[in-house]
């Protein structure tokens, strides 16, 4: 019996290893199949004339399937076309997969890119790999939440703290500068989570003495989880005046919760980012408005900064890619439409 279990354990562990290996192999395989053309070109040109090589910039993002990342990618592709460089763009399935992102960064380094664009899920975890890249002279451009380190030449990102301050000011204005507010934040570890929380809380505490922040909870950006917790917050504080959701999943969770409790119009919701449901909620008037980053701008500026670094130009250290407040009134404006996505 004991032996059987041991054997089983061994099998489980070995299969896990095989699976893990397969996993990374297929990843690499899919990557290389993704740039089959470029790599084909690369090898060709390498054999003929290395000088004609297009620079290759590997971008490792925090996600790929979310529309936000797709907008970042499309911005990056625009820049790639404009500056005539090759890029690859990839990221883990969700924003808790720090380990997977490390594998991707490692794989990107193994391909000897000319530059790297990187949005860290966890700055601490990525620092050894980034140091390695730095030692081999590969310029690194951080984007989105950036990297908490001296290594990146530049960071192309939304100033999330400032954006959250804007959210706090709007919230204060909407609720008449008094009452109770609560926060649904996507996580307490990432730089975006922390800045979007602190920017909001500190602004309220400093500037609005009559507003009380009663609770801050974290829903991982998971719609269902955020719905449940926002609902619980409203139960615990029946007299809430407003709730702030720090990203799409969190904000939609708040909207769902308000709908389910039939408190439309009683609670002021301020959101962050966009997405169809958030846009609909703003149009319907359930959500007062939201802050949006400029995702295409983030992708574009990242590649642009990488190209500048490769050309030996000086790169601005903090590239602010901007943010917008949008609500019912300006949602159809051109600059807003370019930054939000369904």
């Amino acid at each position: 019996m004991k032996k059987k279990w041991l054997a089983f354990l061994v099998v489980v562990i070995s299969v896990l290893f095989v699976l893990a290996a397969c996993g990374s192999e297929t990843e690499e395989a899919s990557e290389s199949s993704g740039n089959e053309n470029d790599e084909g070109k690369e090898t060709e040109t390498e054999s003929e004339e290395a000088a004609e090589d297009k620079p290759y910039i590997a971008i490792v993002s925090k996600g790929f399937q979310h529309q936000f990342w797709q907008a970042v990618q499309s911005g990056a592709e625009k820049a790639a076309e404009e500056f005539d460089v090759e890029i690859t763009f990839e990221g883990p399935e969700n924003e808790s997969q720090v380990d997977k992102q490390m594998e991707m960064l490692q794989a990107a380094l193994d391909k000897n890119p000319d530059a790297i664009g990187f949005a860290a899920l966890d700055s601490q975890a990525s620092s050894p790999l980034l140091e390695k890249a730095d030692e081999s002279g590969i310029p690194i451009i951080a984007f989105d939440s950036g990297v908490d380190s001296e290594i990146p030449l530049a960071t192309a990102s939304t100033d999330n703290y400032a954006a959250a301050q804007e959210a706090a000011n709007r919230m204060a204005e909407l609720i008449g500068e008094e009452g109770k507010v609560a926060l649904v934040v996507h996580d307490q570890v990432s730089v975006t989570g922390v800045q979007r929380r602190d920017g909001f809380i500190e602004t309220i505490e400093e500037n609005y003495p009559n507003i009380e922040i009663v609770d801050t909870q974290y829903g991982g950006g998971d719609h269902l989880e955020s719905t449940n917790l926002a609902k619980t917050m409203m139960q615990a504080n029946p007299d809430l005046a407003g709730i702030y959701g720090s990203n799409e999943g969190s904000a939609i969770g708040v909207v769902n919760a308000v709908r389910e409790l039939g408190k439309e119009g009683e609670i002021t919701i301020v959101g962050f980012d966009s997405g169809k449901q958030q846009i609909d909620a703003i149009k319907d008037g359930i959500m007062a408005g939201a802050i949006t980053q400029n995702p295409e701008g983030i992708g574009y500026e990242t590649v642009k900064a990488a190209v500048q670094a490769l050309d030996g130009e000086e790169v601005e250290e903090n590239i602010d890619t901007g943010y917008f407040w949008y609500d019912k009134d300006n949602i159809e404006d051109e600059e807003i439409q370019a930054a939000i996505y369904e």
């Binding site: 979310h66 399935e93 969700n94 719609h223 719905t227």
Partner: peptide, 11 residues
């Protein structure tokens, strides 16, 4: 409940 199918949830 979410009035949408969220492909990234569930894990």
């Amino acid at each position: 409940r979410l009035n949408s199918a969220q492909p990234a949830l569930g894990m």
